[in-house]
């Protein structure tokens, strides 16, 4: 592993993916340095979810490569498992386990995957629940929480596994407007702590404040890559301009 590999968390190279005959990701290359906060945006159906689901192995791809800290994803089962464990994923629909308490949601992987003892796992999970400002809900069930609280639990659950990279797929799209801020504040906090992240979102205020790069996707390709100030004020590509107009209106 050379120096550039050490400073790179994800390297996606010439990635191609098809769903049957449908070409969903077309020659995607993207390098995410350690500590980078990259926001991905683009019209619905442009392949944003498919891309970040490829990065943690939830979706298979057909050509190109994805390396997570130098470990190749999709090469073989052992490597894929190793690579996947470097990522944490937050879904649009939270996907908390409804039959488990908030605390048990957070400790399940610690106990079954990391083999941690109950006391230690509870302790660690409580710390992360504190970090997402929700420690008092530890013994409730997800169904008893608001959407914003559930999404913060989902973030804490992912953080428990100590990921090198956090993946967010429209983490606030399923939320009522008044809850968006509490979730974005938590993600902003993570960014300030230096967490590397790939975040699909259309929250422009958040992107301006947190992102060091905005990636615009359309029809399965990366069409434009720019710092947020530049992207939002003077996008180069006509389709990016069109997209920003639809967001504003």
């Amino acid at each position: 592993m050379d120096q550039s590999d050490k400073d790179t968390v994800v390297r996606i190279d010439a990635l191609q993916k098809w769903y049957g005959a449908f070409h969903v990701l077309k020659d995607i290359s993207l390098t995410v340095p350690r500590g980078a906060r990259i926001v991905i945006c683009g019209p619905s159906g442009s392949g944003k979810s498919s891309l970040i689901r490829c990065v943690n192995g939830l979706e298979a791809y057909q050509q190109g490569t994805i390396d997570l800290e130098g470990v190749r994803l999709g090469e073989n089962a052992a490597q894929t498992t190793l690579a996947r464990r470097k990522t944490g994923m937050v879904f649009q629909s939270f996907n908390l386990f409804p039959h488990l308490t908030v605390l048990a949601n957070c400790t399940l992987a610690l106990r079954r995957v990391s083999g941690m003892a109950r006391g230690e796992a509870d302790e660690l999970a409580s710390q992360y629940l504190e970090k997402v400002r929700i420690p008092e809900q530890a013994h409730k069930y997800p169904g008893q929480l608001s959407g914003g609280q559930q999404q913060r639990v989902a973030i804490a659950r992912a953080l428990c596994m100590n990921p090198r990279l956090m993946l967010f797929d429209e983490p606030t799209s399923a939320l009522d407007p008044e809850m968006i801020k509490e979730v974005l504040d938590v993600i902003t906090g993570l960014a300030k702590d230096g967490m590397t992240m790939l975040c699909v979102t259309h929250e422009m205020g958040f992107a301006r404040e947190v992102a060091d790069e905005v990636v615009f996707m359309d029809h399965g390709s990366i069409v434009e890559k720019a710092p947020p100030d530049q992207f939002f004020s003077q996008p180069c590509h006509p389709r990016a301009r069109e997209f920003l107009n639809t967001l504003l209106h």
């Binding site: 990522t87 879904f91 996907n95 386990f97 409804p98 399940l108």
Partner: peptide, 30 residues
């Protein structure tokens, strides 16, 4: 059971067997 349940388990690195026992089976019983 929504597909997202198994995906969340997979994303956490939980193996297939444990996913069935701790995530799928209890929700199925309900």
């Amino acid at each position: 059971i929504p597909k997202g349940q198994a995906e969340a388990a997979q994303a956490l690195g939980i193996g297939r067997r444990d996913t069935v026992i701790f995530v799928i089976a209890p929700q199925m019983l309900r």
